[in-house]
Design a protein around this nucleic acid. Sequence first.
DNA 1: ATATAAATCTTATATTTTGAGATTTTAATC
DNA 2: GATTAAAATCTCAAAATATAAGATTTATAT
Lengths: 259, 259
Amino acid sequence: MSTPLNGSLIKAFEILALFDEDRPEASAATVARQLDLNASTAHRFLLTLEHVGALTSVRRGVFGLGPRLEQLGRLAERMNPLPAFVKPLLDDLSREMAESVMVCRLSRLGPVCVAVAESGRPVSVVVKTGTALPFRHTAQGKLWLAFMPEEERSALLQQTAILNGQAPESSDMEKLARELNEIRERGYALNLGDNEPDIAAVAVPVRSGTGEMIMSLSVFGMLSRFDKTFTDRARRRLLEVSDEIGGNFVSKYGKYNAR
Amino acid sequence: MSTPLNGSLIKAFEILALFDEDRPEASAATVARQLDLNASTAHRFLLTLEHVGALTSVRRGVFGLGPRLEQLGRLAERMNPLPAFVKPLLDDLSREMAESVMVCRLSRLGPVCVAVAESGRPVSVVVKTGTALPFRHTAQGKLWLAFMPEEERSALLQQTAILNGQAPESSDMEKLARELNEIRERGYALNLGDNEPDIAAVAVPVRSGTGEMIMSLSVFGMLSRFDKTFTDRARRRLLEVSDEIGGNFVSKYGKYNAR
DNA sequence: ATATAAATCTTATATTTTGAGATTTTAATC
DNA sequence: GATTAAAATCTCAAAATATAAGATTTATAT
């Protein structure tokens, strides 16, 4: 057969997978029970994971996720392969639509552009990779809000308001909630000059195999060029390409939750 | 002696430590050379790390950090032990100063309050953990800006400006640069009503063993109570406690880079 | 004080990991 | 096209380590 894998390492990551919001800490007894390991083996794994910084000792016998994972996680985010994967697809789509196209992942700052193909038109909108878009008033931002869990959306909107130094009006929140409902039903988001007067965008979700939104894919450009014919065509093409990205990226890179 | 550690797992994390900005990808040959491993062993580790999602295959034989690390990193950040560690120290200091005291870590949103001890005064400033402070005009924000690398500061200021929908004036930038220079020379930052008219704060860096800033420690309260005598005393005490936090936290949890 | 459960340590043996060597793949050169 | 060299990948017996049974220590409740 092919190269066998290292069983210890697999077990170690199974241990790391035990931690989540509902289980922020674990003891050797917990690990032993959950993974059907001998207590001594569980204890040794925990001590080793602590030694490498992946876990940290909360108190005697109890461990939580550690700083090394934070560091590696941040490094991994800065280096992920997504941009290289989608760029060729974006280039093709951009040529076809004769507008700029981008893919965004979610960050706490808002949807962050991770890959962009520019239209090459003399007058067009320029967005650089790494740019975070506002959640409110952009197609990408509203799309992410529409498809994220309610508690997360509330927390995020509150954070954004604090940063902007203003409290959201409740009538604004209701209007937004209605709009997000529409987006969920339609399956795409539109911006016709809401954020910047002359800028328009159509955005669709890219989904993982289990249906959750992992990226947004959008066409954007000058408002004057986004008539109904164009936006309908864009929406359809975007949804086709997003299916292609979702399917191929997942099969190539495994389940990839961008959030 | 005590419980022996699992050597395979240690080696796996040594492999993960090979990746950084200057080495975003690695092959089995690279790993074998860097860690003095047999090529087959190196190959097996890489395949196993890919299997668990810690690495991802960029192309045949070449791997980069993978999505599982991103997920674990984000989870770890949400659950780190820092708040529990510093809270008793903050409580003591808050009682001594008769003002509120907090520790912030850096996030892209700004310094985020991870632990706070409130003063218990009838009229005082309330900040909750999880709250992100603005970079501009707060003592904590300016402190972080002062001690972060130039490229990172520029990128961050640009991001913040985009989110706020305004471009920074160049005279503002020069004024800020002078102010950040002062902060670096003094070793602490002050806010006397810059952000909110009635709020004052003194903030100092907490450093790791290698000298980089890993947290900010600050006293904050009503401006009317922050005369020169108080701010001088606060600054001195903060610097003493920050040394204590930096030394103890690092020895307990290892090198902990909050950024 | 006693009892119990869990954390931690010890150590012989069972199991897995290792690495030498074989095979396959790829890229460069002629 | 053929040849060469380096690296990726696979195979399998020997070496090394991981495992787990059992002992000891610790903490908590009564």
